[in-house]
Amino acid sequence: MNIYVLLKQTFDTEEKIVIEDGRVSDDGVKFVINPYDEYAVEEALQQRDQHGGKVTVVSVGPDRAAEALRQALAMGADEAVLLTDGRIGADEGAAAAALEKYLSGQSVDLVLGGNFSVDSGGGQVAVRLASRLGLPHVSSITSLRIDGSTATARRDAEGDTETLEVTLPALFTAQQGLNEPRYPSLPNIMKAKKKPFQTLSLDDLGLSAAEALTERVSLSLPPERGAGQLIPGSPAEQAARLVELLRTEAKAI
């Protein structure tokens, strides 16, 4: 089975956001595999180990995204591909166009990605890609079982659980709870350095452009929330006072 995982490098979720010159500063920031994509990598490895085949991790991003791909190789992926080019526009449509061009030249049985990225959070790239490639998809899955060319997935839909059956090749996006991503072992970290790693530009893909259809006009931080008041007293007094404040001062309940 040829398995492809879409992977984005994002800020660690414990990072604070600092804006400098209208952009998010990445000074000293710790980068990780987007947590939802990490579930996708783990799922790909488990499916490969069960059914045989090869796992290729693919990312669209700047040069530093290579680190995240190496991390996925260290987890156990077989090959990595970084699509990097200043001409790939900065939105989900552009990323999907580059990925489509790359994947349409490959023999694909299964594509896995994250449900959304924890940075831009558009939740578009994987589903757009499925549509562009004409693949059936199920988004936000919490389990995946493959039997021959049929995949059965459970999808989380705001607390409802839908069970869907699709025919491979197909694309799935991972929701929390799908699996427990592994940590790379030291021998695997060493092995990862020797695994095939391709870096491709738009010229390599045979694309003249992958244009963004939207653009960012401004960026700002949320208004600071000042610390409020601590309510003193016994638990009973605190509870009574809080209810009173919520009704009179905050007019919330």
Partner: peptide, 12 residues
Amino acid sequence: VYAGKAFEEKRF
């Protein structure tokens, strides 16, 4: 963006 650690304005 970043789940509300920042906000952006976008246009088509």
